[in-house]
Design a protein around this nucleic acid. Structure first.
Lengths: 79, 79
DNA sequence: AGTAATTTGTTCGTATGTATC
DNA sequence: AGATACATACGAACAAATTAC
């Protein structure tokens, strides 16, 4: 699985955004399902909570996912 | 009783964790009994709900207390 | 039997301050 | 000076378990 390179010129939040995008486009996380939670991603990739949120914000700005407080971050189906 | 200093260098959640630890070690809340509820602590000390949960998480990680949904946060007896 | 209230636990959203590059 | 990253704090919503009525 993809890992984060903290010394890369590409910002960490952008690296994670690409990883999450890959989960969606590959069908690993299909439409209607939720991405892994923010605390999980934070711990799993060894990055700060706020940085994960920033990565997810990228996908939200693109209309790829939508966050639902108390539930999760869900993939939008582009039907 | 102890108060929270919002301008201290020590994080609020750590200050509360120490106050709760004091309740336990002093015997004010003996083994088998529950700490004050999260909403109560939140209102009593003037801090956010999530910050109280974070403080309690510190004690849970140390095995000092255990949370029981619907009941409370109970002090573990160190027998 | 069933509804409501309380409590813990988990989630996302937003904001602030600090440090680093 | 600006972007990035981390830590902290607050806020709000939702679920599950328990208790009370």
């Amino acid at each position: 699985m993809s890992e984060i390179d903290h010394h890369s010129a590409v910002p960490v939040f952008r690296q994670l955004a690409e990883i999450l995008r890959g989960m969606i486009t590959s069908g690993e996380v299909p439409a209607g399902k939720a991405l892994p939670s923010i605390p999980y991603l934070s711990q799993e990739y060894g990055i700060a909570d706020g940085t994960v949120k920033k990565a997810i914000q990228v996908l939200k700005d693109e209309g790829l996912v939508i966050g639902v407080p108390g539930k999760g971050t869900f993939v939008i189906g582009q039907s």
